[in-house]
Computed example of a mutant assay.
Amino acid sequence: MEDYLNQEEVSSKRLAHGDIIDGVVVRVDPDEVLVDVGSKSEGVISSRELGTREAGTPDLQSGDRIKVFVLQPENEDGNVVLSLRRARAESVWIKAQEKQVTGDLMEAEVREQNKGGLIVNVLGLRGFLPTSQVSRSYSANLQELVGQRIGVKILEVNRKRNRLIVSQKAAYDEDRARQRSELFERLKVGDEVRGKVSGLTSYGAFVNLGAADGLIHISELSWDRVANVGDVLQVGQEVGVKVIKLDPDMSRISLSLRQLGQDPWDHIEKRFPPGAVIEGEVTKTKKYGAFLQIGDGIEGLLHISELSWDHVERTEDVVQVGQRLRVKVLLADRPRRRISLSLKQVDEPGFRPPVDDAEAHDYPGEIERQPEHEPVLAEVSAAPPEG
């Protein structure tokens, strides 16, 4: 009884062009398909309205439940003219609208290039991918994408104008963000990973780790002093690096190249014990002294007060960059990573007479005193005769 009432309700409803309704296949003929749509007469689907070029003609059987599109509520024979092809196309447009709302990633096949971008096939619909929405990796050469399947997000759906706009960039950025999140969950400080150098700057090198780029600061390139990043790495070079810091909130990964090797400051006190005389090359000069490279990744400070026994006004008056010197190790401090050197103590100072007179301390420049003598007394016995 309930089914009869439902059927009466459908029968009483006036059909209109554009309606999408449910139906049941009654008979399949070579040139048409009869469908029961609950109206007074059966609906008819002509052969040309069965399928699409992309999807082909469906294999229908009596009793199949299908959705159909009303082309004409009633023709001259009193039948409802229906289209399975249009119903399926409309269903795809509805699905496209749903995907736009949910923001789901979709797969698209790139069909061709035009002056504004790329023509794509999404869900069987013809869509447009503007050049501005192409991923940065391909924006310079769109032709490379023709024939490929790519991930996109639907930006706009306009059924009346048959307009479907998609974005590869939005899909790429979202997928990149997901992969980046997974990368930060997987990485740990101390991990050794491999990547490709993606860029060089004055302060370091960026290394692509797949889902994100990490930075090797110039100070982490080598234990030796590095003046130019390009002297150590080149763009496109495959490198092994060590993770030394992770900041998921800022999406930053700090890497090190030098820490893959042994720290040259290990056992520094044994390598450079106090009193040892060694050779080094002046790498830079400052107001307060000069730095010498005395080993791989090891620099020591030659303070201006240790340049000479004499007063030194300017460091450059005694040493120059590139000059090799013999110096004495005064102190090797591993925790502070400092080595103190002396040039003047390599050779003992010249003889300097001791000054015991307390008065001499008031005049540091006066270090020699004339000896004092006892007075000589003489007795005068007679005056010389006057001429």
Rank of each mutant, 00 (worst) to 15 (best):
Y363W: 08
V26I: 13
E112Q: 12
G289F: 00
E374I: 06
P130I: 10
V380P: 05
R369V: 01
S219I: 02
I367L: 12
R336D: 13
I367F: 13
E316Y: 08
A360I: 05
S305I: 00
K196N: 13
L118N: 03
D29G: 09
L302M: 09
R48H: 12
K153N: 01
K284L: 11
R48L: 10
G124K: 03
R111H: 11
A140Q: 10
V101L: 13
E32A: 09
I268C: 04
N158Y: 04
D19A: 07
V81R: 07
E238L: 15
D19T: 04
V25R: 03
S132K: 11
P364G: 14
I294V: 04
G199R: 12
K344D: 05
D224V: 08
E281C: 11
R126A: 10
H17C: 15
Q168R: 07
L255Q: 03
K169M: 10
L60W: 01
L325T: 03
N158F: 14
L5I: 05
E112Y: 11
V35H: 11
R88K: 12
G78E: 03
R336E: 07
P335L: 13
G280E: 00
F351A: 15
W265V: 07
G297S: 02
E54Y: 14
P73L: 09
E372V: 11
E182R: 14
D191H: 08
E348M: 15
G51Q: 07
V329M: 05
I268K: 00
R271P: 10
V28I: 11
P58H: 12
Q143C: 09
W93G: 08
G387N: 09
N162V: 08
V312H: 04
S137E: 08
R326V: 14
D191L: 04
D249K: 13
V239P: 01
